[in-house]
Computed example of a mutant assay.
Amino acid sequence: MKWSLLSVAVSAVTGVAAARALEPSGRGLLALILSLAGICVLVGAMGTNVAIRVHLPKSDDVGIRSFLVVSVRLLLAVAITLVGLVLCAYRWIDPAFGSWSIALGFVVFGIASFVSNQALDLLNARGMVQRSAMLNALGSILTMLLVLAALFIGLGLVAVIAAYVAGPLVQGLVGLAWSADALAADESPPAARSLLRTGVRLMGFNLGQSLAYSSGPVILAAIAGSREVGIYAVAVTPASLARVPANALGQVNFYRASSGVLTLRRLRRELAVVMVSLSAMVVAGLIVAEPLVTTVFGSAYADSVVVFRLLLLAELALVPFLIIARVLAGLGLPRAASTCGTCGVPVLCVGCILLVPSYGAAGAAGASIAAYAAMSMLAVWMVCKYRARLSQVN
């Protein structure tokens, strides 16, 4: 937990430093690069990073060698997809992708993120959870230090992108090095199909909610341009900190549900406590939004104040989903959990198409409120539908 909290804090500092180092349009292009690459990596992994965490602890036919072989093949597909995305982004989203430095930075960042993603989850699958969390935090710290250096030296967007590449690249290489001894001892037979079959079945939960989080900046950039994405991204940095308590409780309740010790009464009580506590935090955030944003990020991001206030409301609406979706997954209902996350994507897309042309980043934030509320309402309906499973876990 301490490493995870450290990573959250470091990411917040990195976001502030990146905003200070770049003007809104540059910060928006950075956010667009991170969002597009993140979606590509998540889809490109085909759920294998989750599947290895299921198979390896069971010591069945799927071993480390099979995972790495599949990962190399998927990496080639991811690299080709990233190049294709550069061409699409240049044509339909932002002409800045026509710059060789931006295009190369985007592709290399996506590759480094994929390697890091696979390597860290391989450590988790081997039971080295603390070491994986530590490596994740250390990579985040490296990125933060390099972004701060770019800020103080006065370097531009390319240097900041390079800083974001360095963290996951080190994470991936070190993580693979830590698994080299286990690879040498692995004598399991090839099992690529089994790994992919399990991965595709399990990837829905993460994919749905990640698309709901990441689609907004992409649509916003296509409609309103990178500057509005920069305004939106700066508001997201502090607002997303509100997810920490709900995410932590969701992880705990995932374990409780899968272990058969979670009751509906307990879930209701804990959800109410989190909602009331977070509501107080949101009210405080609404009050101090203007001095907080302009002081921390600079006067260039004054337009982010309204967006920040709207995103605080969106984060409050997201709380039930963050907790209940993990409960559904813990109960062995991955399809129900993934449906809750996926339902937010069309709501977000339609909301952005309707609101962004008139309201820019604030319109995207309003669409997020609607999408997150839809995700939470469906999650509440789902847990009510399957409440008998909770009542039987005593």
Rank of each mutant, 00 (worst) to 15 (best):
W3D: 00
S4V: 12
L6V: 08
V8K: 12
V10I: 13
S11I: 11
A12D: 00
A17P: 04
R20I: 12
L22Y: 07
S25L: 04
R27V: 03
L29A: 03
A31K: 03
I33H: 01
I33C: 02
C40P: 02
R65N: 01
S66T: 10
V70A: 13
L76A: 15
V86F: 03
A89P: 15
R91L: 15
I93G: 02
P95Y: 11
S99I: 09
W100Q: 14
W100H: 10
G105S: 03
F109T: 13
G110L: 06
S113Y: 04
G127R: 03
R131L: 05
R131F: 06
S132F: 05
S132D: 00
A133N: 15
A137D: 11
L138Y: 10
S140M: 13
I141H: 01
M144I: 08
F152M: 07
G154A: 14
A162N: 09
A166W: 12
G167W: 12
P168H: 08
L169Y: 07
L173E: 07
A177Y: 10
P189E: 01
P189S: 06
P190T: 05
A191E: 05
R193T: 08
V200I: 15
M203Q: 09
Y213S: 11
S214W: 14
P217W: 00
V218H: 05
I219F: 08
I223A: 01
G225Q: 02
S226W: 00
G230K: 05
V234N: 02
A235C: 04
P238M: 07
L241I: 10
A242C: 11
R243K: 11
N247P: 00
L249V: 08
L249F: 10
Q251S: 13
N253E: 15
N253G: 05
Y255R: 14
R256T: 06
S258W: 04
R266V: 09
A272L: 11
V276F: 12
A284E: 07
G285N: 08
E290A: 05
V293W: 11
V296M: 08
S299Q: 13
A300W: 09
D303P: 04
V305A: 07
F308D: 04
L311R: 04
L311T: 05
L312M: 10
E315H: 10
L322M: 14
R326W: 08
L328K: 02
A329N: 14
P334H: 08
R335D: 09
G341N: 03
T342V: 15
P346V: 14
C352A: 07
L354K: 09
S358E: 14
I369C: 09
A373S: 10
V380T: 00
C384D: 10
K385N: 04
Y386F: 15
R387Y: 05
L390G: 02
